[in-house]
Simulated scan of single mutants.
Amino acid sequence: MTCTDLLTLDDVYAFNPNYGTDPSYKPTSSSAKTAASFQGLTCGLLNQSSDGTIEISLTQPNAQLMTQQQDNAVASSKIVPTYGTPPTAQGFFAVTNGIGEAQVFTDTYWLTISSSNFLEPGDAESLVSAALGHLK
């Protein structure tokens, strides 16, 4: 899966037409760095007018990492029912040091989407929904 498979150009445009692929993206959030260390997908979007960024990561963690990340989400985030219906998908959201992060766990995947522009769960909802719609 590529970044444009996870969030198509149409998905990103529908969210905000000012966003596009960040050509100099490197993982910065702990979630994206963890996903990258497990050969997951990490992507960056850049707001062409404000330089705001959105960081996306997706991985298929082993059972131990999945449990560890879910436990961390339960301890440090709030459950977001609009990100999916358990047990098919379980969603969480938290703002830490000014960065809002949505996390969704499915049977197979761990998806994270984070940005300083996400102050509440609804800010990331359309991207979360679009990404989940592309997972098989």
Rank of each mutant, 00 (worst) to 15 (best):
D123A: 15
L6M: 00
L45G: 01
S77E: 00
N18K: 08
F92V: 03
L6E: 02
E55G: 03
S29W: 01
Q70V: 09
A124D: 12
F105L: 07
N62A: 13
C3P: 08
N117I: 06
K26G: 15
Q39S: 14
S29N: 08
G122W: 04
M1R: 08
V12C: 04
L119A: 06
C43L: 05
V80A: 02
A94Q: 13
D5T: 15
G100Q: 08
F93D: 04
Y19C: 01
S77A: 14
L45N: 10
T42C: 10
G40T: 10
V74A: 15
G98N: 12
Y13K: 08
D11A: 08
L58K: 14
S24C: 00
W110R: 14
A14R: 09
T112R: 05
T88P: 10
S116P: 09
A32R: 05
P86L: 00
A89T: 06
Q103C: 06
V74H: 08
D22N: 11
P23M: 06
T21A: 06
T2P: 02
L9T: 03
T34C: 08
A36C: 04
E55N: 00
I79W: 13
S115V: 01
Q69R: 15
L132A: 03
G98M: 09
A36G: 04
M1H: 08
E101M: 09
S30F: 12
I113C: 01
Q48E: 12
G98C: 09
A63C: 04
L58C: 12
A94G: 10
I54S: 01
V74Q: 15
S29M: 06
L45K: 13
T88Q: 12
T4A: 10
N62Q: 10
N16R: 02
F38I: 00
T28C: 05
G40Q: 10
P87I: 09
F93T: 10
D71L: 14
T106G: 03
L58A: 10
N117E: 14
S57E: 00
V104N: 13
G122A: 15
T67E: 07
Y13L: 01
P27G: 04
G52N: 14
V74C: 08
A36T: 06
I54L: 04
D22M: 00
T4S: 13
F105D: 09
P23V: 00
A73I: 00
V80T: 09
I56Q: 00
G133N: 11
P27K: 10
P23Q: 01
A73D: 12
T82F: 12
C3N: 10
